[in-house]
Design a binder for these strands. Structure first.
Length: 426
RNA sequence: GGAGGAAUGGCAGAGUGGUUUAACGCGGCGGUCUUGAAAACCGUUGACUGUAACAGGUCCGGGGGUUCGAAUCCCUCUUCCUCCGCCA
């Protein structure tokens, strides 16, 4: 949720930012309406406070009168109390409706893009921030896409996934299953080396948590929901891990906070079918190691760069051709202020696959979660939150299989061999 | 799933209708003393809202109610603990 304070104090920057996101005019107009409503809220609140102070005063006087036995005088004051209460009741209603208006509309406004975010409408307008070195690999004519490689080497089974669960669920087996486990351990170890605390969170979360990181209300349809217990299956570890710090006031400046977690991720991905979602390209359940940072506002963009380097290091060790995109305003997620996507080139599919998304949310999530710290002056200030995938497994798996095939089998990159226990798949 | 108990400041813990503007203690911060530290002593120490700054208002797990007045009484929800049942 955008801070009302920012809406008020930096209205021009907010509007310019929303234009980068191509927000419709009527949504931009909300800003002025929210501020006006907040003005009203303030004035009603201060009038009501005066009446409440009067009530407190009267209650005290009545108490004193009862003590000294002056019952008739007390009765007179009681009448006055009920008159004041009438007024307060109306003010309360007015206040509640103003607050509701502010809340309901504020939650519909996306995060304000950082000044470096390019303007643009869709994925085509994303900026190539960095192209990995070297030419893109070219494979032999008979190179296979990963779904065929999986069949050839018995690595995972789509049909069994369908049989057991449904379309979009994968059953990994043999060296495929082992490769999954190897990747998870590799990613976790790399995160640990970089100073991240390893977390194993719950996979089902309540509505408060889903709201805290911004999945609710706007992405409700993307999540699986266990109705009987009102719990959501997590779409990413970001949700439970970031919510560790919901309603937290950090005492000393305990920055930087570095957390990582491996979890399965569940996404309904309603409505996405077709060639581009074949094989591992898009599935309902996948594994991912996620990095989460909670940081001082002044440091958050330096931290974002640091996270980019971490993810880049992983791809280099896996010997995968990659590029880094800076997402344009129109393609960026609702809650993000700036996002970098990592894409890996699949030589067999001859296309780029998104394998990681690294974002700075600034105070957007922290505002919803009331995640604050005490600054030197003793004020409570919202912290900044960031997260990034490091990495999501299915497309990494796809790219590994496809790019490292040589006709005789699949070569396992050096860095992964201690984890797989084998150096090739044949 | 059944029965009972509990939820108060960073922690611990009093408080069962009116100077509670929440006691005492621990911890934190500042000071005295000291070469420095410890100990001792003195002072200070919640969040939110609001104001130019005061003032004022709200908050004792959440929500609702009774009352002139609620941490305290009532209803409801949630969570935790104990016992029983079930169980990887």
């Amino acid at each position: 949720m955008v801070e009302l304070r920012i809406l008020r104090n930096e209205t021009e920057r907010v509007i310019a930012g929303y234009k980068k996101r191509n927000l419709p005019e009527e949504q931009i107009a909300l800003i002025a309406q929210i501020i006006a409503k907040d003005d009203l809220r303030k004035s009603v609140q201060s009038q009501m406070d005066i009446e409440l102070a009067r009530l407190n005063q009267l209650a005290k006087e009545i108490g004193d009168l009862f003590k000294t036995g002056k019952k008739t005088e007390a009765e007179v004051l009681k009448n006055e109390v009920s008159a004041v209460k009438e007024i307060v009741k109306k003010q309360e209603e007015e206040l509640a409706s103003a607050k509701t208006f502010i809340e309901e509309n504020l939650i519909q406004l996306p995060n304000i893009p950082f000044h470096l975010v390019p303007a643009g409408k869709s994925a085509e307008d994303n900026e190539v921030y960095k192209q990995g070195s070297g030419p893109l690999p070219v494979l032999a004519e008979d190179a296979l896409p990963h779904w065929d490689l999986a069949k050839k080497y018995d690595l995972f089974d789509m049909e069994l996934g369908v049989k057991i669960s449904g379309s979009g669920f994968i059953l990994y087996r043999n060296k495929g299953a082992r490769l999954q486990r190897a990747l998870i351990n590799f990613f976790l170890d790399e995160a640990t080396k970089a100073g991240y605390e390893e977390i194993q969170p719950p996979l089902l979360v309540n509505a408060d948590s889903a709201r805290g990181t911004g999945q609710l209300p706007d992405k409700e349809g993307q999540m699986y929901f266990a109705e009987k217990d009102e719990l959501y299956l997590i779409p990413t570890a970001e949700v439970p891990v970031t919510n560790m710090y919901r309603d937290v006031l950090l005492k000393d400046e305990k920055f930087s906070i570095r957390l990582c977690g491996y979890t399965p991720c569940f996404r309904r991905e309603a409505g996405s079918y077709g060639a581009h979602v074949k094989g591992l390209n898009r599935v309902h359940q996948f594994d991912k190691v996620e990095l989460v940072r909670i940081e001082h506002p002044e440091k958050s963009y330096a931290v974002l760069d640091e996270m980019l380097s971490h993810v880049e290091g992983l791809l280099l060790k896996l010997e995968l051709p990659y590029r880094i995109l800076r997402l344009c305003g129109g393609d960026m997620g609702f809650t993000s202020a700036m996002t970098y996507d990592f894409e890996v080139y699949s030589a067999a599919q001859k296309r780029w696959l998104e394998v990681s998304s690294v974002s700075n949310f600034e105070s957007f999530q922290a505002n919803r979660m009331k995640l604050r710290y005490k600054n030197e002056k003793g004020d409570s200030v919202l912290a900044h939150t960031l997260n990034g995938s490091a990495l999501a497994l299915p497309r990494i798996m796809a790219a590994l299989l496809e790019n490292h095939q040589d006709g005789n089998g699949i070569r396992i990159p050096e860095a992964l061999r201690p984890y797989t226990g084998f150096d090739s798949i044949r």
